[in-house]
Design a protein around this nucleic acid. Structure first.
Length: 163
DNA sequence: GCCAACGTTGGC
DNA sequence: GCCAACGTTGGC
């Protein structure tokens, strides 16, 4: 039985790793390391190969959904947690008992124009979207199918005149 | 750069 | 198990 495709949103600061970095990466693929939040980790553990991901630029000007990526591996141990020199080193995670996981994602598409937070907030069907919740900081979060469809429809359209 | 919201830590 | 202190995220 084939599981239905799931949708997610992943945040990255473009200064650190942008959608262009993903597009230019070897095989247009990267491992999503450095996640050190249990909720975000658990969402990655729930991911399946083929799941679709909205790529979001945080701390950007303006912060926006900028494109699409695809999950290409199941979750597996994040080795960066074992490395004392790594900024995301976590001594609680040991190779024999890994605490943190990551997945690999592959570039699918960059939107012709980014969808900024202010524009997304105007869409009534996105009212409940995790990204738009006040104080929401989750760097990996689920996206509802109708939210996914709404955002893809928006990305198809040229920017509104005068907007 | 500010600061509100949030998660984690650690004293008790 | 409570909760204050602290560190981080991320919009603005």
């Amino acid at each position: 039985m084939k599981e239905p495709r799931q949708y997610w949103l992943m945040k990255s600061e473009p200064e650190a790793f942008s959608i262009d970095d993903l597009a230019n990466a070897p095989k247009q693929t990267t491992c999503w390391d450095g996640v050190r939040n249990y909720q975000a980790r658990n969402f990655m553990r729930a991911m399946r190969v083929g799941d679709q991901v909205l790529f979001y630029h945080s701390n950007a000007d303006p912060s926006s959904v900028v494109g699409i990526a695809e999950v290409v591996t199941r979750a597996y141990p994040d080795r960066s947690a074992f490395d004392p020199k790594d900024p995301h080193y976590d001594p609680k995670s040991r190779p024999e008992k890994p605490l943190w996981d990551m997945v690999d994602i592959r570039f699918v598409q960059k939107f012709s124009s980014p969808l900024g937070l202010d524009a997304l907030r105007k869409i009534s069907t996105l009212k409940k979207m995790e990204l738009l919740r006040k104080g929401s900081r989750l760097s990996v979060q689920p996206v509802r199918p109708n939210e996914w469809k709404t955002i893809l429809d928006l990305s198809d359209k040229p920017p509104k005149p005068g907007a």
